[in-house]
Amino acid sequence: MQWIKKHLATLSRLSILLVMFLLLVIVSPSFGTMTNILNVLRVSSLTLMVATGIALCMLVGGIDLSVGATIALTSILFGSRFQLGHGIGDMVFGIAGILVVSALIGACNGFCVAWLRIPPFLATYGIQQIARGLAYVLTNGLVYSNFTSTFQFIGGGRILGIHTPIIFAALLLLIVGLMLNKTTLGRRIYAVGSNREAARYSGINVNATLMMAYILSGIIAGFAGIVYTSRLNCAEPTIGSEFAQEAIAAAAIGGISFKGGHGNVFGVVVGALILTLITNGMTLLSIDSNWQVGATGVIIILAVLIDRNTAKKKH
């Protein structure tokens, strides 16, 4: 009974997901097939990855609007600079380089937020502009494509019949989940997000913790960029622009509070799946795909309004 009470919010989200799923199965019989379920999972897996990173920033009381540009920049860098040859060694080297670059972008965000005290949404927007600008400068108008088949396997392959992005997303969730619940870094992230001053009085290095959250978000976005590039088999500077808001929407539905310190990774999974089902459902009902951007906007607002933790009136 106590357990149910404590996890009431998560359970209600889960039941919304189930109801939506059942509705879609009834409306369209082909929806319940294994192929389609796998497809839904595959589509949601990238949003889920990015949302996990953004959730870390939200847990420390911030936001990361730069993820889309990070994906674009890393994608371009991989296509134009890092993938020198066609061997596996080159690819591994390239991926490592990408992760370093994306960590640097995250570090820039973290520096602006922690040390320069810029409001997170402004700092990460500014970095977003810079990163996307760099992506354009680096391409010189070219589009990179035709990567090696090994590289294409990363985002487009299957292992035991399951699409690789799903596996990567699951692994990432496991790692981030463990990090949040089983490491002192996780404790610090929640402590800083919940009450920054109390964390400081407890001897927690607040700036380092903020920095870490943004660096991790950057690395996760960079990794998502690799998977995305591999699946598209092409790299161009315009990609990824819709990722930030989808991920924010997923995290918001998943119960990650914009005030920080509240929410968990499992919620993000449910959030990302609900979001994917909504867009999937809209496609099934043959609604103009333009509406989907608006849907994420409405969802963000509704999710925040419903969340009792944030929607309280002043006083």
Binding site: Q245, G294, G297, V304
Partner: peptide, 18 residues
């Protein structure tokens, strides 16, 4: 409410864009 204003206005912005 005391929801951070950036998040609501971001949502409204997406609605307008759509």
């Amino acid at each position: 409410t005391n929801i951070p204003s950036f998040i609501i206005t971001l949502g409204v912005s997406k609605i307008c864009e759509t």
